[in-house]
Write a protein that binds this DNA or RNA. Structure first.
Lengths: 137, 137
DNA sequence: TTCGTGCTTGACGCTTACGTAAACGTAAAG
DNA sequence: CTTTACGTTTACGTAAGCGTCAAGCACGAA
């Protein structure tokens, strides 16, 4: 078995912040809340691909409106060790729970998109009415 | 043109709170932020179907992770008067904006659901491994 | 009249998710 | 050696979204 020699790229906190358009404060805050655990080289933080993925997951969770506490649980699911049976059952339970939530949100989105389409149609109708009115003057 | 005589039902704050499972404080807070404008009968609040719809829209917005300020803009779009051309153009712009956001969120949800499916599959595989192992003892 | 029930308006408290200095370390470049 | 860039911790500030009293009004039943 050979050591598959991937570059094993790393990033500084500033690089990661620039890439994902967040502040350094935000990244450090996520670490403070246990969402990130970068390596330390001296006192400085060094981020590995794994940390990068976690940050992306965190931000996706935020866009979805989850709290950081919820995001912590979700993200930790991805990194979960095989563990024993009870742990796996718990994980499966969590998955079901999150899926239910997400499907509710998807329904909310569909409904809202439809509502927006209606408002838009009304808008166009109103615009047409205005134009017809001014044309006939 | 006859006066279509719908019952014109109304609700108290407590009834509305119970129906949507929010506290009185929450409903009053939404009013404070300009999201609701119930009728007053003496000092008491009286909610009409229109208010009920708005509350439902607010809560859906919350599930979608919008801030109350954003929700205010969205909900007000529904009730917008025909208005003049500039106003309508602004509204259409807002609609496009919201739609873009919602479509991003929908993509996030799809991705997350797929990720969850993968974690779930891994989970089931791990469970199977555990069972096979204990079977062979 | 008194009680209970449901409503009202403050007003202070709390948590989340950061922003915003302040004060300091370190390492390469000029 | 000093400047500059980039990083660090500590800590107070703040906006949002309510929770949680406190104190009081209104109204029908007992």
């Amino acid at each position: 078995m050979h050591n598959s020699q991937v570059p094993a790229e790393t990033w500084s906190i500033a690089e990661l912040a620039a890439e994902y358009d967040v502040t350094l404060r935000t990244i450090r805050f996520y670490e403070d809340r246990g969402l990130l655990n970068p390596e330390r080289r001296g006192t400085a933080r060094v981020y590995h691909p794994r940390d990068r993925v976690r940050l992306a997951l965190i931000l996706r969770g935020k866009r979805l409106g989850f709290s950081l506490d919820e995001i912590a649980k979700i993200v930790d699911m991805y990194d979960a060790e095989p563990g024993e049976e009870g742990q796996l059952a718990y994980l499966l339970d969590q998955i079901t729970h999150r899926r239910t939530e997400l499907e509710q949100r998807r329904r909310d989105i569909e409904e809202t998109l439809q509502d927006l389409a209606e408002v838009e149609a009304r808008c166009h109708a109103d615009l047409k009415a205005l134009r017809d009115q001014s044309d006939s003057r």
